[in-house]
């Protein structure tokens, strides 16, 4: 900013710091303690899931092995946390720690795959509905409304009763019912972006619809895409766990968090073996909490204005488009 040939730039505003926006985002994120903590937890969780096999060999317990002599008390009750079983055993004498690690795999993969698929679908449909407009928008918008007004869990019950529980079905159901959230957000954003003058400028230069959607509009959607995709992961994990809890998700004996909790709930065994609910329950809770905190932290870091906007957006009133009296 030192030398400049432009009269406008003669007085360089001191406020502008020469730093890439990516670096700024990283700095803001790093300053967010809760966000960093959440990220740390997620990294640990991923390591835990990836290392499930290692844990298995280290403890010598397979996730489905039932240790009837060491893993159950003489009266047939599960054994609490101790040296042999770090997190205790369940009602069949299986190692909770190992099952938890393998369950983490299932949960993370389902959450990740489902939310990625859902956001791809949501982005595409939202982009098309918002940009093309007209009847396309009416039909796609109505389709989103339709999906949103379906009682999700009940329909899943119906599907499961016909096709039987499976991972594929769980993922498909999560994707089918969650793309609408991001689809709606994207559509709304595109609707307003489409009217922005830079899009009209591109159009007046002769850019085609695809070029405008990809080059002009998509880069402006990175913040909602990242934030909403992050927030969909915990929703997917919880949904899968809920299905398994109701006995409609992962088929036992394959380990899953929801299934572990369901087994703990059956016959109220968890009332005498607290670790059966508190350990998987809190891991599940902390996982969703971590992803939600991460989503919030990402939003704050990527779009710092969203925090302040409410307080300072009015000062630039005169810069807004004149003449249009309606609130747009």
């Amino acid at each position: 900013m030192s030398q400049s040939s432009s009269p406008d730039a003669a007085a360089s505003p001191a406020a502008i710091v020469q730093r890439g926006s990516f670096e700024l985002t990283l700095r803001r994120f790093a300053a967010d303690k809760a966000g960093m903590l959440a990220l740390g937890f997620i990294v640990l969780l991923v390591a835990f899931a990836l290392g499930a096999g290692l844990i298995e060999t280290w403890t010598g317990h397979s996730p489905v092995d039932q240790f009837r002599d060491t893993g159950l008390t003489p009266t047939g009750l599960p054994v609490g946390p101790g040296a042999e079983f770090l997190f205790g055993t369940d009602q069949l004498g299986r190692d909770v720690l190992v099952r938890l690690a393998y369950g983490a795999r299932t949960s993370l993969v389902i959450g990740l795959v489902a939310s990625l698929c859902a956001s791809c679908i949501g982005i595409t449909i939202g982009l098309i509905a918002g940009y093309v407009g007209g009847w396309t928008d009416v039909i796609l918008g109505r389709a989103m409304d339709l999906v949103m007004s379906i009682p999700v869990l009940l329909c899943t019950l119906a599907l499961v009763s016909v096709f039987g529980p499976s991972i594929m079905l769980s993922v498909a159901v999560i994707v089918f019912f969650s793309w609408t959230t991001i689809g709606r957000v994207i559509r709304g954003q595109v609707l307003s972006l489409r009217e922005r003058e830079f899009v009209q400028a591109s159009r007046s230069l002769g850019a085609g619809p695809l070029s405008i959607m990809v080059v002009d509009i998509l880069p402006n959607l990175t913040v909602p895409i990242i934030v909403y995709t992050t927030m969909m992961i915990p929703a997917g994990i919880v949904f899968e766990a809920t299905l398994s809890f109701l006995g409609l998700g992962i088929v036992p004996p394959a380990p899953s968090w929801g299934g572990m909790l369901a087994e703990a709930a059956a016959n109220s065994i968890y009332l005498v073996a607290w670790w059966l609910i508190l350990i998987p329950g809190s891991v599940l809770l902390f996982t969703t909490l971590a992803f939600n905190i991460l989503g919030d932290a990402l939003r704050d870091a990527l779009d710092p204005a969203s925090r302040r906007r409410s307080r300072h957006n009015k000062s630039k009133g005169r810069q807004r488009k004149r003449g249009k009296e309606g609130r747009s």
Partner: peptide
């Protein structure tokens, strides 16, 4: 042949490019 310069200098430039 025909070019347009728009009103709003904040809106007519893509903020992400």
């Amino acid at each position: 042949t025909v070019q347009v310069v728009f009103q709003d200098p904040f809106g007519s430039l893509n903020p992400r490019r």
